[in-house]
Amino acid sequence: MSRKGLWVAAVVVIVSNVFALGSAGINRGGEPDAVLNLTERELRLAPREAENTAMGLRLAWIDPAANAQEPGWFDAAKLAEIGFDCSRPVTAENASHYRTQPPRSTYAVLENEGAAWQRYLAAPPAGAEREVLERQSHLVLIDVGHDPSALRARYPDRRRTVVVPATARMAFVNDGKRTPFLRGRVSVTYPMELNVPRHLRPVLESMPPGARYAFDRRFDRLDRPGQPLADAPHYRVVVKWGRSLEPWIESVQAIGQTFAR
């Protein structure tokens, strides 16, 4: 029997990996698209599993307008801009039309400790304490769009803003008390977890077991008696985003001796 198929399979393996590695090389070549200094607030250690020795950091960001009672900047016009069909009147009769639209791929702009964060601190949600807010991620979702180049032109500060691939959803908000409206939200940004290379793990591995930063003291469901939470993040991470908007961790440094005991 001919063994051409065997060679085809081997070529597929090699070509796929060459393509993937080449893409990674192109992404990391030249000037990075963004370089951000993030802390444990924005990059949280993923739960470790016994069956998986890899280590990852999960990007955490906030969307202050997510639960607002008005559309905010992610309104019907913005939704239409990124491809959602908002042509019908926003009424209860058309609720099905809007609720059945699947999520769309887009690009999101995240800003680190910028004007959006300052506005959020200055006008917090009702009942929120400033201390609680400051413990959250300082990375704020500020815009979405189809064209990453156009977004970068709009937000040129590469040390404070980053453009990332994302998935956006549309919500048809109708609480019966006011006129229905459409609001968008970003459900996920990619990648969801950043791989920590082996040579950068020592700082993260030296954290005492159970040492955790209090991301949100009020709503932290992981708070356990006998495991006091730290008041400040334990580490700082420099992350670069390349030409293909794919990130990599450049460095990880401990912040003082703030590990909780």
Partner: peptide, 8 residues
């Protein structure tokens, strides 16, 4: 490989 290089 996609996870190692944080690929979309």
């Amino acid at each position: 490989v996609g996870a190692i290089f944080n690929m979309t």
